[in-house]
């Protein structure tokens, strides 16, 4: 097996285009799969030295997360956490500290695990992904990026280079909640919401649930239910009753579909309440 450590994006794109090559970012998913023999790549292309892919950039109107930004960097970035509370909370409860130190934004999204903690908040926040190949660059809403478990719209030879978020407005709020069996665990269900509150009413909202379908799912019925409404106790109770109907969970060793539906309702209700109650910073 070949091991490449390119230092420029151009070089990385050339290597990634080789047949049998796999991108190595944090390695927290890929290395385990290789150890189990489920992946046997001919070449590994490490992104660890590609400067163009590193770090968080705060622009005037947008925020750019380089693909190899680690989860730990997200947690430690004070301004980012203030702008996107849902993202900060998701990063904070993502894996263990050891995993957060290695795992990257791009790696987690491209791994396309249905129970990713990162994808729901980013989708709720309206994130876009930048994709690059030797030939072209394109941008895609993150909500359109996932196809199924471990399946994305990434074309052969294409690399996810960054995630881009619009800077939130003064009335934008967000929240993320995750239910697990023990402290450090994969999500049984996670829910992220981002909303704009206008004079106490929901002007705009996205609600996304993870680990309850083949990809993170937008809860469109809930979004429609709360749009234009004030998030009072009765409406929230209705959210709690209905959110579970919008997801397609499976029963597995971690939880039953019934429990996952139940949790989706509880978490969605609570996430909306948390976001609505949040102070604007």
């Amino acid at each position: 097996m070949q091991y490449h450590r390119p230092t420029t994006l151009a070089e990385a794109l050339r290597l990634v285009a080789e047949p049998g090559a796999r991108v190595l970012a944090g390695g927290t998913d890929l290395v385990l799969r290789m150890r189990d023999g489920r992946e046997r790549p001919d070449a590994l292309v490490s992104l660890g030295r590609v400067a163009e892919l590193a770090g968080v950039t705060l622009g005037a109107g947008s925020v750019r997360l380089g693909a190899r930004t680690t989860l730990a960097e997200l947690v430690e970035h004070e301004e980012l956490g203030r702008l996107f509370p849902a993202l900060l909370e998701a990063a904070r409860v993502f894996g263990s500290m050891l995993v957060r130190n290695l795992a990257t934004v791009g790696g987690n999204l491209c791994n396309a695990s249905p129970c990713s903690d990162l994808a729901p908040p980013l989708i709720a926040l309206g994130a876009r992904v930048e994709l690059a190949s030797r030939e072209a660059r394109r941008e895609l809403p993150l909500g359109d990026f996932f196809v199924g478990p471990r399946e994305t719209r990434l074309a052969p030879g294409e690399l996810l280079t960054a995630v881009v978020l619009d800077r939130p407005g003064p009335r934008d709020r967000s929240a993320f909640l995750k239910h697990t069996r023990v402290t450090v665990d994969l999500a049984l269900v996670n829910v992220a919401v981002a909303l704009e509150l206008d004079r106490g009413k929901v002007a705009r909202v996205r609600a996304v649930a993870g680990a309850v379908g083949p990809t993170p799912l937008r809860l469109l019925g809930i979004e429609a239910l709360v749009a234009g409404q004030a998030l009072g106790p009765e409406l929230l109770a209705e959210v709690g009753r209905r959110a579970g109907d919008e997801v397609k969970p499976i029963s597995d060793v971690r939880a039953s579909a019934e429990y996952r539906r139940m949790l989706t309702g509880v978490l969605c209700k609570r996430a909306l309440a948390t976001a609505a109650a949040a102070e604007v910073s």
């Binding site: 069996r181 023990v182 402290t183 450090v184 060793v253």
Partner: peptide, 14 residues
């Protein structure tokens, strides 16, 4: 569930 990913024992967190 033949691994600590899905066999959960108590840790400091619990």
């Amino acid at each position: 569930n033949p691994s600590f990913r899905d066999y959960k024992i108590t840790t400091a967190g619990e």
